[in-house]
Amino acid sequence: MKGNKTMLGLSLREEFRSRRLKGTAIELTNDNDTGATQLPAADFLEITYPSTDLLKAIEAIGPEQARPVVVMGERGQGKSHLIAALHHVLTDSSQTKSWLRAWSQRLTRSNIETLPLRSGMLVISESLHRQRYKFLWDLIFERHPHGAFIRGKWEGQGEKKTDIPPDTLLLELLRHQPTALILDEFQTWYDGLVNSPQQPYKNWAFNFIQVLYDWHTKIWILSLQEVWDKG
Rank of each mutant, 00 (worst) to 15 (best):
T188P: 00
Q77D: 06
P50S: 01
Y213G: 10
L107V: 01
S93I: 07
A148L: 11
L54S: 04
L12M: 15
R19H: 15
E74T: 15
D31N: 15
W154M: 02
G3W: 08
H81M: 05
L10V: 10
T29G: 10
D92C: 07
S127L: 05
V123Q: 02
R75V: 14
H88Q: 06
H87V: 07
F44G: 07
D31G: 09
K218A: 11
A60H: 09
M7D: 05
K79I: 03
Q65N: 04
K2Q: 12
L170S: 09
W215K: 15
Y201R: 12
W103R: 04
Q210F: 09
D43C: 11
S223H: 08
A41P: 09
W228A: 09
G23V: 07
E14G: 05
A148I: 06
E64I: 06
T34G: 06
M72C: 12
L8M: 13
L39E: 06
S80L: 05
V70I: 06
T96S: 01
D53V: 14
S119P: 00
I61G: 12
Y133P: 02
I209A: 06
S125Q: 06
D184I: 06
N195G: 02
P116S: 01
K22W: 09
D31Q: 15
E14A: 10
W154G: 10
R75P: 12
G156R: 11
L224M: 09
T29A: 13
A60M: 04
K153A: 07
Y49W: 15
R20P: 04
L107S: 01
